[in-house]
């Protein structure tokens, strides 16, 4: 389904006039994307709904000030990511210690060489049951790490933008990404071992 031309000035006017049909079109186009993003970042169904709702509510309120200089999707997602970061403000800095750090240290000998070659997880990743496995493993990744990883790998935001949104330093982001990736990789490696 081709996306309607939301950048059209007439469409924008209809939004500003709170035209129900126009808003329904916009909701059809982007609500599923917002919900999917929130779920992907590890929010519960309820929290995902709240986030999507508050993003749309803010858009309804703020549409009068929107001048159409950026795409409305960009504008909406900007609001959405702000809501996400408000939701987390307290907990998003990387903890000083995380169990994965020790796991990673134990993988290398005193010369910093791999004790054992990293096991092949690619077959697992691309196998049929991979999706469930990955989802299961994602659940073991702490929230802030998961969000950082999601914004980077799926939203493909640049690192500066993620730091702004999450209000963290680049060093902190590096720590979050290191941990998220290695948690996920370790988990898949373990699952691979179990299944032989």
């Amino acid at each position: 389904m081709p996306e309607p031309n939301f950048s059209d000035a007439r469409f924008l006017r209809r939004l500003k006039e709170r035209d129900r049909v126009a808003w329904a079109e916009l909701a059809d186009a982007y609500l599923s994307q917002l919900l999917r993003a929130a779920r992907g970042m590890g929010f519960t169904i309820e929290d995902s709904q709240d986030l999507a709702q508050s993003a749309f509510a803010a858009l309804i309120e703020g549409i009068g000030r929107f001048e159409g200089r950026s795409h409305i999707r960009t504008f909406l997602f900007g609001i959405f990511y702000n809501k996400v970061s408000e939701h987390l403000r307290e907990k998003q800095r990387a903890e000083e210690n995380d169990p994965i750090d020790e796991v990673m240290e134990s993988k290398f000998d005193l010369q910093g060489k791999w004790r054992q070659p990293p096991l092949d997880i690619e077959k697992k990743i691309f196998s049929r049951e991979a999706r469930q496995m990955v989802e299961k493993c994602l659940e073991t990744v702490p929230r802030a790490q998961r969000i950082a990883f999601y914004l980077r790998a799926v939203s493909e935001m640049d690192t500066t933008e993620i730091c702004n949104k999450m209000q963290i330093t680049p060093t902190n982001l590096g720590v979050l990404l290191f941990r998220a990736r290695n948690y996920l990789r370790e988990c898949l490696e373990r699952m691979g071992l179990k299944r032989g």
Binding site: S32, G40, Q49, I121, A130, R131, V134, L138
Partner: peptide, 22 residues
């Protein structure tokens, strides 16, 4: 490969959830 898997993992949102949201 992990990044690719992450993009795949978040499956589509159930239609009922989208309807409620709308």
């Amino acid at each position: 490969a992990l990044a690719a898997a992450l993009r795949e993992a978040a499956g589509p949102v159930p239609a009922a959830e989208i309807e409620t949201a709308k």
